[in-house]
Design a protein around this nucleic acid. Structure first.
Length: 301
DNA sequence: CAAACTACCTGACTGC
DNA sequence: TGCAGTCAGGTAGTTT
C-alpha cells in the first residue's frame, strides 16, 4: 500500500520519465479510475492528446502533473469551464504508475494507458495500474499551483513549509484520539495507518489519547517521529523507476525490516518485551504495546 | 464546525 | 472443490 514515501518515489519516477513528451494517445480501459474527472473517460482522453506533462508535483499522497497549454475547453462542458490544466492522481490502496515500452504485455489491472513520444519520436507508455481502484486520475483546472480539488489537503511532514507549531495548536484543540488526528489529511497529510502506528509506538503514546490531553512537546515529538519514519522509508525506497513496481507493491524490504508496531500482534515489544496488541480501529487495525503505550483514562463527565 | 460513520473495490486467506 | 465470510485501508460523502 503506497504511503507518502512510496508516492514520493513515484513522483520522482514521473519527473524522470514522463515529462516533456507529447501524449499521442490515451486509452481508458476502466471507467472507475476516472470517475472524478469532469465529463468522464471520453473528455479525459480527448483533452490530453497532443499535450505534454510539464512537471510532477505532490501534496501528501496526491500527485499532480501540470500540462502544457491546450487549444480549448472540451465542448461537452459548460462555457468557461476549464478542466485541463493538470492531471491529478491518487494511487489509493493498490495503484501504480509504470513506464513501459510500447507493446509490453498489459498488466492484469491496467486501467489507463498514455502513449508518449519524445523529441526524437521514440515512444513509451505511461500506465496507471490499480487492482482495487480506490485510486484514480482526473483532469483539473489547477495547473502549476495546488489544484482546487486538493486544496483541503494539508502539507506533509517532509514539506519544509509544514508549520509544526500550527499543527500542535490545532491538534490540541481537538477531542478526537491522536491517531484519528494523525490520519486527518486536513491537519497533516501523508500519514497512513502503518506510519501512524509506528510514530505512536516511538512516542509511547496510545492512539486514543485525545488531542486536547497532549502537551505541545508531545505533539512536536510525535510529529518528529512520524517525519523520521517516513524519511527513513524514503531513503530505503526505490532509487530507480525500474524498481518502482516492486516498491509500490510494498516489497521494498522496508516493511519487513524496520517496523516496530504495525503487524506485530502477539510479538514482543522491541522496547520492553511485552506482547504487542491489536485493536479494531476505524474498520482497520491498530497495533501497540500495552505497556509502553498506556490507554488514556476515561474523561470526567 | 467537529465527530463519527459508511461506501467504495478486489483478491488473499480462512473455515466449513 | 467450492463457497461464504473476513480482512486490508484512503478518501469522500453523509449523518449526528
Amino acid at each position: 500500500m503506497p504511503e507518502l514515501p512510496e508516492v514520493e518515489v513515484v513522483r520522482r519516477g514521473l519527473e524522470a520519465h514522463a515529462l516533456d513528451r507529447v501524449i499521442t494517445s490515451v486509452e481508458v480501459l476502466h471507467d472507475r479510475p476516472v470517475r472524478r474527472s469532469p465529463g468522464g473517460a471520453s473528455v479525459f482522453a480527448g483533452a490530453l492528446v497532443g499535450r505534454t506533462f510539464t512537471a510532477a508535483r505532490r501534496r501528501g499522497k496526491y500527485l499532480w502533473l501540470p500540462l502544457s497549454p491546450g487549444s480549448s475547453a472540451p465542448a461537452s462542458l459548460p462555457m468557461g469551464a476549464q478542466v485541463d490544466d493538470a492531471v491529478i492522481g491518487h494511487l489509493g490502496m493498490s495503484g501504480q504508475m509504470l513506464v513501459q515500452p510500447v507493446g509490453a504485455p498489459d498488466e492484469k489491472h491496467l486501467r489507463v494507458r498514455f502513449t508518449l513520444a519524445d523529441a526524437t519520436g521514440a515512444r513509451s507508455e505511461l500506465r496507471f495500474v490499480d487492482q482495487r481502484m480506490f485510486g484514480g486520475l482526473a483532469l483539473s483546472a489547477g495547473g502549476a499551483e495546488l489544484p482546487p480539488e486538493i486544496a483541503h489537503i494539508a502539507r506533509d511532514l517532509l514539506d519544509p513549509e509544514f508549520d509544526l507549531d500550527d499543527f500542535a495548536r490545532r491538534v490540541r484543540r481537538r477531542t478526537s484520539g491522536i491517531k484519528r488526528l494523525l490520519l486527518d489529511q486536513t491537519l497533516v497529510s501523508g500519514v497512513g495507518n502503518i506510519y501512524a502506528d509506528e510514530a505512536l509506538w516511538r512516542s509511547g503514546l496510545h492512539g486514543e489519547r485525545p488531542g486536547d490531553r497532549l502537551t505541545s512537546a508531545q505533539v512536536l515529538e510525535l510529529a518528529g517521529h512520524a517525519r523520521d519514519v517516513m524519511s527513513q522509508a524514503l531513503e530505503q525506497g526505490g532509487t530507480s523507476f525500474d524498481a518502482l513496481y516492486v516498491n509500490v507493491n510494498g516489497q521494498s524490504g522496508y516493511f519487513d525490516r524496520s517496523l516496530n508496531a504495525y503487524g506485530r500482534e502477539d510479538e514482543p515489544c522491541r522496547r520492553c518485551g511485552t506482547a504487542m496488541l491489536r485493536a479494531a480501529f476505524m474498520n482497520r487495525s491498530s497495533y501497540f504495546c500495552p505497556s509502553c503505550q498506556k490507554p488514556p483514562r476515561a474523561r470526567r463527565a
